[in-house]
Amino acid sequence: MELLNPNLGLIAWTTVAFLITLWILGKYAWKPIVSGLEKREQNIADSIQAAEKVKQEMAALKSENEELLAKARDERAQMLREAKETRDKIIAEAKEQARQETNKIVSDAQAVINQQKMAAITELKNNVGKLVIEVSEKVLRRELASKEAQEQFIHELTSEVKLN
């Protein structure tokens, strides 16, 4: 019977102890602990969210990078193509120019040659004319001497002429 008979003192002390414990712990322990735990969980959740966000950003950045890279590659190819074209054009132009130059030089040279030739021919003509005149003069001078001498003389002259 004693066992199931609560005694007054213990009831009073238990009530007091429980209420004091509740008050002290509620103020100094449970509040900071519970709010601390909440905060930490919030922190972790935020961190995970931030990491997720960063990951997404990274993925976006990566695809952007790839796009840029592809674009750059295209550009490079284009540039290369253009450069090649330019080169070909320049070469072709240079060739054309060279040909024209050559043609011009050749034609100039031909013209000069022709001129020189004409000059030489004219000079030759003049010289031949002069010689002929000289020879004719000498022949004319020596005609009266003898026939033999004349012929010999003509020979001499002709050989001289040949030597020339």
Binding site: A17, L25, Y28, W30, P32, I33, S35
Partner: peptide, 24 residues
Amino acid sequence: NVVQMLLVLTLFIILMINIGKRYK
């Protein structure tokens, strides 16, 4: 019972206040 309860609770309260301080 009373003495032991008060003793145990005192120890426990000290322990918990220390822990609470750490969280703070």
